[in-house]
Measured scan of single mutants.
Amino acid sequence: PEEVRRLVEELYRKGVSPEQVKKILKKQGIDEREIEKVLRRIG
């Protein structure tokens, strides 16, 4: 979803590592598979 992409990109631009991005967003209840999809697209 758009909102997940925005959150991931925001953290990524701040220099947060992909592993940390995953941890942070998982705590917020976001599906890990969604996060990984976005990270793959960015990375």
Rank of each mutant, 00 (worst) to 15 (best):
Q20W: 13
E2T: 10
V21Y: 01
G29M: 03
G29V: 01
R13K: 09
G15A: 03
K22V: 12
I24H: 06
K14T: 10
V38K: 01
K23I: 11
L39C: 03
G29K: 03
D31T: 06
V21R: 00
Q20D: 11
E10Y: 07
R6N: 06
E32A: 06
V8A: 08
G43W: 13
K23M: 12
P18K: 14
K37C: 11
I42Y: 10
K14A: 12
V4D: 01
V8E: 00
V8S: 01
G15H: 05
I35L: 03
E3P: 07
L39D: 01
E36V: 05
E2K: 11
E2M: 08
G43A: 15
V21G: 01
S17E: 07
S17Q: 08
E34I: 13
Q28V: 08
R6S: 07
K14M: 10
E10V: 07
R6C: 04
L7I: 06
L11G: 01
V4E: 01
D31Y: 02
D31L: 05
I24Y: 06
V4C: 05
E10I: 08
I42N: 03
K37G: 05
E3S: 09
L11P: 00
I24S: 05
V4R: 02
E3M: 09
E10L: 07
I35P: 00
R13W: 14
E9I: 14
I35Y: 02
G29R: 02
V21C: 06
E36G: 02
E34S: 05
L7Q: 11
K22A: 07
E2F: 08
R13S: 09
Q28M: 12
P18T: 12
E32Q: 06
E10G: 09
R40Y: 14
K26P: 01
R13H: 12
E19T: 14
G43C: 14
S17V: 09
L25I: 02
E3G: 07
G29P: 01
V4N: 02
I42S: 03
L7D: 01
E36D: 10
R33M: 08
L39P: 00
R40P: 02
V4L: 14
V21P: 00
G29S: 03
E9A: 06
